[in-house]
Write a protein that binds this DNA or RNA. Structure first.
Lengths: 333, 333
DNA sequence: CTGAAAGCGCTTACAG
DNA sequence: CTGAAAGCGCTTACAG
């Protein structure tokens, strides 16, 4: 605290002060149980006295464990993942890990750059939500970091995948729409792989069940509240007016409801609306929004559990964890 | 690529392959201009051949520059900062830096732990949005990292602050409300320091201008769409019904509009509503929401510029940058 | 423009 | 339970 003029105190400063070796201080910090109680007490005091803050760059270099995990998501604004990410960050913190946040947009190039950056920092794991190019998959496969894909279940994941079948979700939605007696669905699909899978699942099932013609709009990803104006006004120009709009997100569904009401339509009587994601607004909107719930907290927990055992040296099986989904029927459809 | 059996290639491997010293490879990576063109070419080839990925833990340790900045925000869900953070992350990436994300909730303890974690990683800068306890301020002051507070202008910032006066914003809102002829405002204030400052500014100005009695509700932070139901129903039980609801966020304002319309009130004729933050929904809601715009992109730019010059060794002046705010009158009030 | 070498601050077998 | 020492993979004066 004094004769180290300005520089940060190091492990050696603490050791000197406590009258032990720096190795012992290191052990105390990483695993207090292995040092004698009396020694521990002296070290604790020395840490406080010196104001020691461990240097995790040095620690990570020496142990090749950075205690850092990269989380890669497309956006922060209007993102369906935020609740999941929030849980993840909280759980990781609780486990003594920090997160490196990467925003990929919808570009695989951006994603691959960020994965390189993450590997540069020797992260213990990479959690990714976006599509990957072949080179990146190869990089992920080679890397000692655990590679986690969440919110989807790719064919042959390079690491571990925790998600659900978007195609099945689409099928379920189709069955629901049919069972409620709607005849003219209008699909609003975001321009991304996952949304497209749901759309395909819907169309397959719809046709398999002998549903009639359906209409569609594609919107930029992510689907937002703000897109509703254009989508709705385009929809109004269709020859056959839909009786239900199936949206790619709750925000968009909310927007459609607002537009419909502004146009004097009663929801769901004159126009029904479905969302996706079961965000907080879905249960609170008037009318409440029928949507599909994904257990983001479970995804986060499974992911973190896998990371912890991977860090603990347990060999990670390459596999997929299907957390499923749950259609929640509310007032809007 | 071959005789290093499994381990990551290092600078030495690249150097060997390129027939130069590792120092030269290091120089090439950090400042390509200083090595001869022919050498550079050989190094480039060797990097590709070996699949070299620099180890930033080692690099950071040696240079005491982590090229990492910590961003500390309260929440990810329903956060007014997301747009600002998104710009920041993008700009930092472009500048070759990565971000460590910390979620503080509303706890100063959590904040202080995260700041310690950030210092452990020897981040070049810490961007914080929350309130700090005295000990943390001291920690920040001592640290070589640039300490940035954004979205507010504290009295005596330990580092640099980039934000605006919440009190002045509250005053402006009061003047606007008065100028539009509203007589019975109902304030919905989130339980946080910044929201409270705006509330205080409003009340001061309102009283100074001779406004009459006003009513208030406090809500948990952050103020969300979902809080609107309770707020609205409580409000309806007041003796004196308000003619305008002044909300702490656009989400909440949107929720109030939905509730008001569901109750058969016309907005703004029978009840006006104001938001705060000018989020994407504000301009797209029906009616569009009168709100206060904060130039988040400017905040992000100023912050990143400061970080870059701090990293470049330019001594950072301790000061505040006021980016102001702008009231946007739309349909809802 | 380039190299040899010291040093950044930890961790971790290895011994005792 | 603890210490001495090597090593993690870089950067950067210092020389040339």
């Amino acid at each position: 605290m004094n004769e180290l003029n300005g520089r940060n105190p190091t492990l050696d400063d603490v050791a000197l002060q406590a009258g032990v070796s720096s190795a012992t201080v290191s052990r105390f910090i990483n695993n207090p149980a292995v040092v004698a109680a009396a020694t521990a007490e002296r070290i604790r005091a020395a840490i406080t006295a010196t104001g020691y803050i461990p240097n995790l760059l040095a620690g990570g270099l020496a142990s090749s464990k950075s205690k850092m995990v990269a989380v890669l998501i497309p956006h922060l604004v209007d993102s369906m993942f935020n609740a999941t990410i929030e849980t993840m960050v909280a759980e990781l913190s609780a486990a003594g890990m920090n997160v490196m946040l990467g925003l990929t947009g919808i570009s695989t190039t951006r994603t691959s750059e960020l994965i390189r950056a993450a590997l540069s920092r020797r992260v213990d794991a990479i959690i990714s939500t976006g599509p990957l190019d072949a080179e990146t998959v190869e990089l992920a496969r080679r890397s000692p970091a655990l590679f986690l894909q969440v919110w989807e279940l790719p064919e042959d994941p390079p690491g571990l995948a925790v998600g659900f079948s978007h195609r099945d979700a689409g099928r379920d939605i189709a069955r629901f729409v049919l069972s409620r007696g709607y005849r003219h669905p209008h699909l609003v699909t975001a321009d991304g792989t996952r949304a497209r899978l749901r759309r395909d699942g819907f169309v397959e099932e719809w046709q398999a069940q002998g549903g009639g013609a359906l209409t569609e709009t594609t919107v930029a990803i992510p689907s937002t509240f703000g897109q509703a104006r254009r989508v709705f006004s385009e929809m109004r120009r269709l020859d056959q007016q839909p009786d239900i709009v199936v949206c790619g997100s709750d925000s968009l569904a909310q927007g459609i409801i607002v537009e419909a009401q502004a146009a004097g339509l009663r929801v769901p009587d004159q126009l029904a609306v479905m969302g996706f994601g079961n965000s907080a607004i879905a249960g609170e909107m008037r009318p409440t929004i029928t949507t599909v719930d994904i257990d983001g907290a479970r995804i986060a927990r499974e992911a973190i559990a896998a990371i912890r055992s991977h860090s603990a040296g347990v060999p990670s099986e390459h596999r997929s964890i299907d957390v499923g989904f749950r259609l929640i029927a509310r007032e809007s459809a």
